[in-house]
Design a binder for these strands. Structure first.
Lengths: 195, 195, 195, 195
DNA sequence: AATGAATGAGGCTTCATTCAT
DNA sequence: AATGAATGAAGCCTCATTCAT
């Protein structure tokens, strides 16, 4: 909302975003009130609206920033690989690693993905991610002897594997994170019977 | 909230559940008020509380019933197959077919899965489903030369593929439903590079 | 908002409108909160929104109804006169008499007339009133030897006289109401120097 | 809130008053926030409270100054006429001309006139104006053969004509300003039938 | 079984004003 | 003189739920 922020202002804004993310993750977006956020920060209600024009706008910003961070991290990691199959693998591992480090965003992403109001933010980033993935997948598959099905679908399938295993393992049993990532990679590359 | 319902009562109750499901799917659970539901049905508010003790209870019941229906349909289909690999395939296809026919439940399941308050209902059914799946997967994989990773994880992976492709294709472009199912099956069985 | 009102409902609604009119007249529209209204009635806040979709909507309805009443009263009185000059006189007297009896609406009308948001309601009624008045004035003036200036303007002028004298005398010194009405009539008919 | 202002300070203050008048005219006093004013000026909030102790105080000052200007302009114009009837005419024309040039103040005056809080400022000026007018009117009427009704009332009537025609024509159709002024004068002097 | 009416806590947001720098 | 930051009361409105009939 405001733009000319002093250092103090920037800090305060970041503080709000982070606290909000924590609370959203704990209780859900709808169940978390603006009052919850500012009270937990010990500041007045007006502070919130000095930095954000609405609760929705805060979530949007939060999604934009974190999603962008995830995507960037992935990009960086993938760039360093040449082999297309390795690229897919690295993509999977980086995603899961990121969620391990930023567990609180996972449920928010899921929530947003299910909401008419918020999914466009993710959609934007995801579309880029998906078309990237399609390219890698195409390269990985090679001469197209699997051209029977759309590579775009494969990209979505990979994302689904990541989401599901992240939800089931990364969040609740971080100690299994590594094994879950291995499983995701193995499954995505070879499937059930593709020994 | 009554239990001994006459036929008329049962009909009314079903009517409420269905209308609620429609509205929840359109606007989301939190954004749909009890008033929305009864108004769209043209009845008074008392009706709602005659059949349900709370809005949450309605969702819980709705989830229980529909999730059970999905699981049952799957069970029936799988039973008719002997080959374990075919069983996995049939499981996938049945899920996606069911969501094609009951699109309105998909987002509700996703919502519930993300909610502390509601996910236990799905969890119950899903745990059964998962251990079933594990069995099938184990059988499919055969003598365990892929025993390196947990079959439970594989089961989650399969579910993730189903969810992701359902969301991306089944809901928005029903005409691609078949291809999406094919893609899901192929991907789950052979993965990206599993020729 | 609601339509199927029981007798009790209709009474309650009327009660709200009247209390609101009182408070608006005393403190002004903006300065009167919905809480003021319901508290002064000893009911819960929800009651207000059962009958009106918003505070603005209440004012709109209040304006519509009362303005319509004023116009109707005028119409009835005027109809009984044949002489056009007498019609103008009766119109003026009826207006002022009505405001004497419904003092609380005067400032509301003035407020609304000054508000982008609300003046359309009055505009509608006033336009009719004005074109009626134009007809009477035309008749009163006779063969048009005053056709030099627009009769529409004259109609507005008459309204201005009514408003101004109402504000200055009717509201604050009801005992002078009669004299004020006489003055308004004399002024409108003959002006300052029109012996 | 300072008093000993440098030239720069005086300019700044005038700037605020004028911008506020613009915004008040556009959106209304209550609907215009202090934030609106300072933002539209591109300055911080402190500036406002440096020059004014409150939003109300700003309006009061604005009313005082502009109303005084109107009255002064009228005075000057009237002084140059000897004939009492001409004086009334010139008073009317000057008012309307002034509002044509300062359209933004019209609705503010109306708003203030309707407000317990603000009307005293206008009252003060208006009372003077009115007693002046009474004198002129008395002179105009001459030997009192119209002494039947109070000349004070006539003064209010004239003001009402001015307000009404100003609102209806001067503000919305400036091109009709001249005709409206003519109409006001003719009506006030001769009334409807005082040919 | 069902209706219209009522409750009241709580949610989001605004805004005049003050403060530290 | 001026800025960005902060306060907190208050306003409008929603909504799950309950009640009287």
């Amino acid at each position: 909302m405001r733009q000319n922020l002093t250092q103090r202002g920037k800090d305060r804004k970041r503080q709000i975003v982070e606290r909000a993310a924590d609370l959203f993750a704990e209780q859900g977006y709808d169940a978390t009130s603006v009052a919850d956020i500012v009270e937990s920060l010990g500041v007045g209600k007006g502070v919130f609206y000095w930095y954000f024009s609405s609760k929705d706008e805060l979530l949007l910003e939060l999604l934009r920033v974190s999603h962008h961070d995830l995507r960037r991290r992935q990009q960086l990691a993938i760039e360093q690989e040449d082999d297309p199959v390795r690229r897919v693998e690295v993509g999977i591992r980086t995603s899961m690693q990121w969620f391990l480090e930023h567990r609180k965003y996972f449920s928010l992403f899921q929530f947003a993905a299910n909401s008419e109001r918020f999914n466009r933010v993710l959609r934007a980033g995801n579309d880029v991610a998906n078309s990237d993935a399609v390219r890698h997948v195409k390269d990985a598959i090679g001469d197209g002897y699997l051209a029977d099905y759309d590579t775009e679908m494969v990209a979505y399938a990979v994302m689904g594997v990541i989401d599901s295993l992240t939800r089931a393992y990364i969040l609740d049993r971080p100690e299994d994170a590594e094994r879950a990532a291995d499983a995701a990679v193995a499954f995505c590359l070879k499937g059930l019977v593709g020994a």
